[in-house]
Write a protein that binds this DNA or RNA. Structure first.
Length: 989
RNA sequence: GCCCAGGUGGCGAAACUGGUAGACGCGCUGGCUUUAGGAGCCAGUACUCGUAAGGGUUUGAGAGUUCGAAUCUCUCCCUGGGCACCA
């Protein structure tokens, strides 16, 4: 027997698997599908340990599912657009595309060394036009439905680089690239109206499906873990129901109905971690309250019909609702159009404008505590509030000095950076000199301006109840405003409203390396629409844009003209305007509507747009008519399990859910959630306990560890080192432990007992107990993503087997199969030597016997196959006589360049059925029962299984225990508590 | 400040619906063997008293419920992550 050299066997089997295509997804299979998804990686250059940690356990799970008869779909791709490519390109002078594609090539090679069952026929590379044209397609659908709109918002703005910055690109209030102070600026950009979906994105408490009255659903949700894994491994009970939906020939409609029920079945089984559900719910931040109008005391009105200047517009707050109310004042037509649109799309934010400009009589506030309105002793409005703008525009009679003071305060607030607002929480503010009437008390109360009131939330104005609200009290104390007790029984008139913390998603990026926005700006069309006052359903929100003071209509690129290709030769170094805007040739186009001179939108889409739907593309990556083929999605979606990192709780997974709900509204899909289950992994820290980083020099490079120990050891260690969701440091010594384990697995070959003996009789009751316990434990753990304890169970069993004189073939093969999902190479290698050895022995002198009466070994294998043999298309042992043993495929001869073609009857261990466990072997002959006195352990007694069901018998035995008696002497037993087969507790006085 | 996840040996961690806390691995200690492939095998290893038999203590701290609590309840402390003047 040769020694275990991972380097000799791993690349070999990787090649075999590839050439034999064992990891190819079987599209036509009748087996139940299982969509195993891992977040697609960003092609940063090399696979790091984090990639290994997210993919390897996910792969073990997938392999386990496949061995359980599922048709596992495990694709992968690359999230290939994005800033790092552009930055690397600027730094090194390589084109972002070249840099990215080279990295993809490199990382794909590295993926091969990981030994996963990923089927690369199903993939998506988001920076290729074959993918991003569908980004554009989806964008246009969203534009058509009013979900994508162009609006203004306060954004982080770097005045030097002339670009919007994401929050993560601000370091200490400064631009991460040029170091200049970031300011808040209103910038026109593209948004997705995710707020329209706020309510639907909230996780309801009963996501486990308990409210369903559907019996089947209830039954499936109530089935315990054990019975689930049982039924799956047997594939003969409840799960069969779903399988038959695919099996039997049916009319298309009934087939669809069945599909529906499968999908809704899964829907009721939606199982996402609490941390994600609550995190998202908090982020969405639904709060129910009331809009209350406070009439302005009118003595100081100057003009009843103010017109808002541009100044007023530029200071308008973030919220769309407020932007809208402004445009209403600008143009009655637009206002009408928009309120129509609002009605059509049922925006939760549609309400009365915060400041009723038409009647200019009220300031409206949002409150969740209307019952405290009698304690409202003043109003506070944000510096960006329209009322402030109207004051500054002289629409109200004001003392000049006062006006200046206000102006100064507002300017100061505007200059405050995000950081300053966060750091300095002391209240500042200024009195407007104006009063409103408290509708409950009838008293006139002052209106103040303060930046502790946020423009972007509610109406940008609050009623201050210093008696009940800490912040209001702080403000009142600082400025000597009255604090009046509230009865908490006030009932002001107003409109019930729901507010959300969630903001619309800004998707504009003034960068090069992304999906071009498929919109064309046409001057002529704008002129025409002005004259005709057309109401196009394609246009929503702002239907024009201003470029250098000129107005243009927004014309969507016709779907058939997609993709709008990202030009290759563009100067992508930062110039203060989007790189694409510098490419005149690309920028200037004919308007698809009127044929006139027009310009393309020069911005690109946020890469989170790309990743919001990539798993749909995986199912039909070549499809040319739509982002995905509905039929394939019906069969493969929703995703069964989605592995990924906790950092995507609020971003990516929320966007992905949003896209799914949008697809549902388009009628493209029938489910609400794209993934039935989400499993989040932790982080592997460097050996020093810190996050791995080049600067700390604590990076563990997977390639090097693979060189040292082999892929299987790294895989096994990643599964074993800690729970999947935990965060812990890499240990350079502990990995040697799993290497030792694999070596012992390798070496235990020498203990295998001669094939000719009757195997079953060789397995003692204890042997069977240990084996079946392990089968159950490893299966349950793989089912539930407890990879570390699954490996521990295998180690425990190997310790048991090592202590035995001989190991039976059945034990050995079971061990290999249970280990196969974790360590696919070594198990494949050993499987082949054992499989061939087994066959050879069967074909020698026992051949005839094997034919008429299969040996126990053969039978146990074929038994486990029989339940699925129809659906499983690879069956290794079903007819031993049909296959002659290949001449000499031993490890050594294979190492001597045995070609893959010579591996004739290649039956991979990974296509073997998962071993079945039989509960009958789990009954122990003798159990250990703990004897307690007053809850303290005093002894443990052995009781025959026939006896422990009767309490009096156990009591008898326990009372004869010397150790226990010591504590019972002179005491009166007042109570005896017996937990069957576990504990007997004497309670004394 | 709010929300979430955690706190168990020297270390990574186990422990099913409350039922022998510390499985498994690392490390360490002792012994055997004296090693072609980073050695292997055997025994021990929570702490503590004791030569031992055998006690006692122990799951961040404190209280409570229970025959019995790492697990359930309450108060507090600490760590990690997220949000942050959201009315």
């Amino acid at each position: 027997m040769k020694r275990y050299f991972p380097r000799d066997i791993e690349p070999y089997w990787q090649k075999v698997w590839q050439e034999k295509g064992i990891n190819k997804f079987k599209k036509e299979s009748k087996e139940k599908k299982y969509y195993n998804l891992v977040e697609l990686p960003y092609p940063s250059g090399d696979l790091h340990m984090g990639h290994w940690f997210s993919f390897v356990p996910a792969d073990a799970h997938a392999r386990y599912k496949r061995m359980n008869g599922f048709n596992v779909f495990f694709p992968n791709g690359f999230d290939a657009f994005g800033l790092p490519a552009e930055n690397a390109a600027i730094k090194r002078g390589v084109h972002p595309k070249d840099w990215t594609m080279k990295n993809i090539e490199n990382m794909t090679k590295q993926f091969a060394t990981m030994g996963t069952m990923i089927d690369w026929d199903y993939t998506a590379i988001t920076c290729l036009s074959g993918y991003y044209r569908w980004n554009q397609w989806i964008f246009l659908k969203m534009f058509e439905k009013g979900i994508a709109y162009k609006g203004k918002a306060l954004s982080n703005w770097c005045p030097v680089d002339q670009t919007v910055l994401a929050n993560e690109h601000i370091e200490g209030g400064k631009c991460w690239r040029c170091g200049s102070e970031v300011i808040q600026k209103e910038v026109e950009q593209w948004f997705l109206k995710i707020t329209d979906y706020a309510d639907r994105l909230i996780w309801k408490e009963d996501t486990r499906g308990s409210r369903s009255s559907d019996d089947a659903r209830r039954a499936s949700s109530q089935s315990s873990k054990i019975s689930r894994s049982l039924s799956e491994s047997l594939s003969s009970s409840s799960s069969n129901k779903d399988v038959t939906a695919f099996d039997s020939p049916q009319s298309e409609t009934s087939r669809l109905q069945n599909q529906e029920s499968v999908i809704s079945n899964q829907k009721s089984d939606i199982d996402w971690p609490k941390e994600v559900r609550e995190g998202q719910n908090n982020w969405i931040g639904k709060s129910e309250g009331m809009l209350i109008q406070f009439p302005i005391v009118r003595d100081s009105v100057v003009s009843r019909h103010p017109r808002f200047s541009d100044d007023a517009r530029s200071s308008s707050p973030k919220k769309l609702s407020q932007t809208r109310s402004l445009s209403e004042s600008l143009s009655p037509d637009l206002a009408e159009k928009q309120s129509n649109a609002d009605a059509a799309f049922d925006s939760p934010q549609t309400g009365l404008p915060p400041f009723d400009v038409n009647h200019q009589s009220c300031i409206e506030v949002f409150t969740t505590r209307p019952e405290t309105a009698d304690g409202a002793t003043f109003l506070v409005i944000s510096p960006e509030h329209e009322f402030v703008a109207s004051l500054l525009n002289g629409k109200w009679q004001m003392a000049n000095g006062k006006l200046k003071e206000i102006q100064e305060y507002v300017e100061r607030a505007k200059r405050k950076t995000e950081m300053e607002r966060k750091e300095d929480r002391s209240k500042s503010g200024i009195f407007t000199g104006k009063y409103v009437k408290n509708p409950v008390t009838g008293k006139d109360i002052p209106v103040w301006i303060s930046d502790y009131v946020l423009a972007g939330y509610g109406t940008g104005a609050i009623m201050a109840v210093p008696f009940a609200d800490e912040r209001d009290r702080e403000f009142a104390q600082k400025f000597n405003l009255p604090i009046v007790e509230t009865s908490f029984k006030a009932k002001p008139g107003g409109k019930k409203t729901v507010n959300y913390h969630l903001r619309d998603w800004s998707i504009s990026r003034q960068r090069y390396w992304g999906t071009p926005v498929p919109i064309i700006y046409c001057r002529k069309c704008w002129e025409k629409s002005k004259i005709k006052n057309q109401k196009s359903k394609f246009e929503y929100g702002r239907d024009f844009i201003e470029i250098d003071g000129e107005k243009y209509a927004m014309v969507p690129v016709p779907l058939e003209d997609l993709p709008v290709e990202l030009p290759y030769n563009v100067d992508y170094t930062p110039k203060g305007k989007p790189p694409l805007a510098t490419d005149e040739e690309w920028l200037n186009v004919k308007c698809p509507k009127c044929g006139g001179k027009a310009k393309r939108d020069a911005e690109t889409l946020d890469t989170f747009f790309d990743s919001a739907w990539y798993y749909y593309r995986y199912v039909s990556p070549q499809y040319k008519k739509a982002p995905f083929e509905e039929k394939e999605v019906r069969e493969l979606m929703p995703v069964d399990v989605y592995f990924g990192g906790a950092e995507h709780t609020l971003g990516h997974t929320l966007y992905a859910r949003f896209f799914t709900k949008f697809f549902k509204d388009l009628g493209l899909v029938s489910f609400d959630e794209f993934a039935a289950k989400r499993v989040q992994h932790g982080v592997i820290l460097g050996p020093d306990g810190n996050r791995m980083s080049k600067s700390k020099g604590n990076v563990v490079n997977p390639d090097e560890v693979v060189k040292e120990y082999g892929t299987d050891t790294v895989r096994l260690y990643l599964c074993f080192m800690m729970p999947y969701e935990a965060t812990a440091p890499w240990s350079t010594t502990a990995i040697a432990g799993v290497y030792r384990f694999l070596k012992r697995v390798w070496e235990i070959q020498s203990k295998i007992k001669n094939q000719k003996s009757k195997i079953k009789s060789d397995l003692s009751g204890e042997d069977l107990l240990q084996m079946h316990k392990t089968i159950k434990k490893v299966g349950d753990d793989l089912e539930n993503f407890h990879f570390n304890t699954a490996v521990a169970a295998l180690m425990t069993w190997l310790n048991y087997l090592s202590a035995k004189k001989f190991v039976c073939q059945e034990e050995y093969e079971t061990l290999l199969k249970l280990l196969a999902p974790f360590a696919p190479h070594i198990t494949e290698e050993l499987w082949h030597s054992t499989e061939l050895a087994a066959r050879q022995s069967r074909f020698s002198d026992d051949a005839r016997q094997a034919q008429s009466q299969p040996s126990k070994q053969t039978r146990s294998l074929s038994e486990s196959l029989s339940s699925k043999s129809e659906s499983k298309d690879v069956t290794a042992f079903d007819s031993p006589k049909s296959e002659l043993p290949p001449s000499d495929i031993s490890r050594s001869s294979r190492a001597n360049n045995l070609t893959i073609q010579q591996l004739n009857n290649f039956k991979s261990i990974h296509l073997q059925p998962w071993p079945k466990f039989d509960p009958k072997y789990l009954v122990e002959e003798e159990v250990s029962i703990v004897v307690q006195v007053n809850g303290k352990v005093r002894d443990a007694i052995r009781v025959q299984s026939s006896e422990f069901k009767v309490q009096s018998n156990v009591e008898e035995i326990a009372k004869s225990s010397e150790k226990a008696n010591k504590y019972l002497e002179g005491k009166k037993i007042i109570k005896v508590i017996y937990v069957e087969g576990k504990i007997l507790n004497f309670v004394t006085n």
